[in-house]
Each structure stands twice: as C-alpha cells, then as structure tokens.
Simulated assay, not measured.
Amino acid sequence: MAAPLRIDTRQQLGKHNAKNRWFAEHGVETVAVKLDAGDYAYAPSNILIDTKKDVDELSMDCGKDHARFVREIDRAAASGCRLVVLIEQHPEYNDRENLRHWSGYVCRKCRKCDPNGGDRCATRKYTPMHGARLAKILDKLEENHGAKFVFCSKSKSAQIICDMMGIPYD
C-alpha cells in the first residue's frame, strides 16, 4: 500500500473541496498533518507543493509577504525538497511573456494608471504588483532559491499534484 498524501492542517476549510473530492474518487489516501513548508507532501517524493488560488494571492506572497515566502521556499530546500507552487488560474501564464501583461485586482478595479508601464498608482501611495515585476520575481525565486512555479486550471490541480509527486491513483 502506498504512503498517504500529507495535507497541511492549516489549509483553509472549504477552499479545497474539489481537490479532496478528486483524491477520494481516485483512491488517493490522505492524512492531515502540520507541514513546515507547502500544502502537500508525499513520503517518497522530494517535492513539496504549495497551492495558490490565483495570481493575486501569488502576487501578495511575492510582494508584501516576500520575506516569509522566501523563508518557506528555503525551509523546503533545507529539508532536501523542492517547493513547487501550483497557481490554480490561467495555465497560459506558464509562458512568462503572457504573465508580464497581468494586472492585479487593485489595478483592474482602479484603471487610473498603467502599472505595467511602470507608473505609480494614481490613487494609492504605493505601486501595486504588476505582471512584469511578478514575472521577474518568479524568475529570481526559481534561479536563486530553487522554487518552481506552475499555473494550471483549478479542475486539474489534484491530478497535477499526484503526477508531480508520483502518487498512484485510479
């Protein structure tokens, strides 16, 4: 019998029902435990997976929460694992050129400036995260800290988690 997929106990309740349902339907045994890094771990694999619901959540981790996020990536590396961040939105953003044209929620709502053009926000005291800056940060996190960023559709994330970690399923 295969080892169970370990799921971090700090996952938000109700936000991962589709993945949990997919695991159950495909015979993937799961167990909830506190993980030091990532949201998903599987004993024989050296990959830890952290999920983000969308690019806006990723941009917050790469901007305002950057230092904490880097510490999490480095904790994974120190334990001999690679952190793969699975962003459940816009698979086309796997092409960093497409990601460079992304605008965050704040800018999509405001529409008074062009942050991708390097403008400061006309209504805020800071410049919100924009696609070109986010793409550059992801490149540096991959290069300097060994993380990997993968974009996928929400409906495919559970299967991608299993495939990346080598978890057998029905």
Score class of each variant (00 low, 15 high):
Leu48Asn: 05
Leu134Phe: 03
Leu138Gln: 03
Val28Tyr: 08
Lys156Glu: 15
Pro115Ala: 13
Ile160Ala: 10
Thr30Lys: 06
Leu35Trp: 03
Phe149Cys: 01
Ala132Trp: 03
Lys125Thr: 13
Gly38Phe: 03
Lys125Ala: 11
Ile49Met: 09
Asp61Gly: 02
Ala122Phe: 10
Tyr40Ala: 03
Arg124Gly: 06
Asn144Gln: 11
Ala43Gly: 10
Lys15Pro: 03
Val55Thr: 14
Glu57Val: 04
His16Ile: 04
Leu58Cys: 01
Arg10Tyr: 01
Arg111Thr: 15
Gln11Ala: 08
Ala67Thr: 13
Asp39Gly: 09
Ala67Gly: 12
Asp61Leu: 09
Lys34Ser: 12
Ala67Ser: 15
Ala122Pro: 04
Ile87Thr: 08
Gly146Glu: 00
Glu142Cys: 01
Met129Leu: 06
Lys148Val: 02
Val106Cys: 07
Lys53Cys: 12
Ala18Pro: 01
Arg133Ser: 02
Arg68Ala: 15
Lys15Cys: 11
Cys62Lys: 03
Gln89Arg: 15
Met164Asp: 04
Ala132Val: 04
Leu48Lys: 09
Cys62Met: 04
Gln12Ala: 14
Gly27Leu: 13
Lys52Ser: 03
Arg120Trp: 05
Asp8Arg: 01
Cys62Arg: 02
Ile167Gly: 06
Gly14Leu: 08
Pro128Arg: 09
Trp22Thr: 06
Glu142Ile: 02
Ile161Val: 14
Leu83Ile: 04
Pro91Gly: 10
Ala67Lys: 14
Thr127Phe: 01
Ser45Cys: 12
